[in-house]
Simulated scan of single mutants.
Amino acid sequence: MLHTLRLFLLGVHFLVAGAVNMLIVLRRPFDPDNSRLCGRVYSLPALRFLGLQTELQVDELKKLTSPCVIVVNHQSNYDLFILGSVVPRRTVTIGKTSLRWIPIFGQIYWLAGNVLIERGNAAKAKAAMLKTTDTLQHQDTSIWVFVEGTRNLGKGLLPFKKGAFQMAIAAGVPIVPICCSNYKRTMRLNRWHSGNLRIRALPPISTLGMTLDDMPALMERCRGQMVACIDALDATPQ
């Protein structure tokens, strides 16, 4: 019963939050700070509906004074509600072009200034990559990337995609890993206290002086740090 009620409230909230966020993005279309505002509208009430006890360790995000590439583990569609509250200022995400056609949400996502990539078209994907490099270097805007490229369903980190690291090296900006504990595996929405959620931002990893030849080592270093961090978050006593 509680599980059903929570899903109902979450659905209603999604519609109401969509209406509020549509007003935000229509008033200031393509503003790079829209994602932060919209993320909070989606996330903060939803965390209460879900009954999750949250612990945020994101001081590294608050210290950011220049653009970076933020890489995050991706567990499920709940990530919109789980991670929306920690999106830093002037940060946009990268998503598939097809997202634009999801009613209401897709139009909000597009008008929020996020970067849409047509993955099946190499030329358009390359053009979008060049656009993100310009964004990082000249528009005081960071890029948020779900670095696995798809949902891992709480089964551990999947292999990383190269795009985030290519962008960071090309623009000469740091990588900032964000790790979220494995809520997908432990969340029980039929309980009043449905689970614990821990999110931690790690120190930036510099890419200055790196070339694409350094990318495999950079990816391995980042993945190793994230695996260790997620394991530590999951091992924390409940």
Rank of each mutant, 00 (worst) to 15 (best):
L83G: 15
D59A: 15
A122F: 06
K161C: 01
S35I: 07
R40G: 15
P237W: 00
L157E: 08
Q166L: 13
L218Q: 03
Q107T: 09
F30C: 04
R119C: 01
P237T: 00
T65P: 07
S85E: 14
I117W: 04
P159Y: 11
N121Y: 04
Q139H: 15
G51R: 08
L26S: 06
F146C: 10
C179R: 05
R90Q: 12
S66D: 14
R221C: 13
M1Q: 11
V12T: 10
I24Q: 00
K62A: 15
T150S: 15
M129Q: 09
N182T: 15
V147A: 14
R36C: 11
I70H: 08
L189S: 12
L153N: 15
R200A: 13
P32N: 12
Q53Y: 09
M187C: 12
V41E: 05
L61V: 13
G106W: 00
R48E: 13
K96F: 02
R48H: 14
D134K: 14
P103D: 04
L130T: 05
A171Q: 07
D59M: 10
G106N: 00
S98G: 01
F165A: 05
A128V: 06
G209S: 04
A171W: 08
G51C: 10
N190S: 12
L189P: 13
N34F: 00
Q53G: 07
R36W: 04
R185G: 05
V86A: 06
L80K: 04
K161G: 02
H13R: 01
S66P: 07
L83I: 11
F105T: 09
L52T: 13
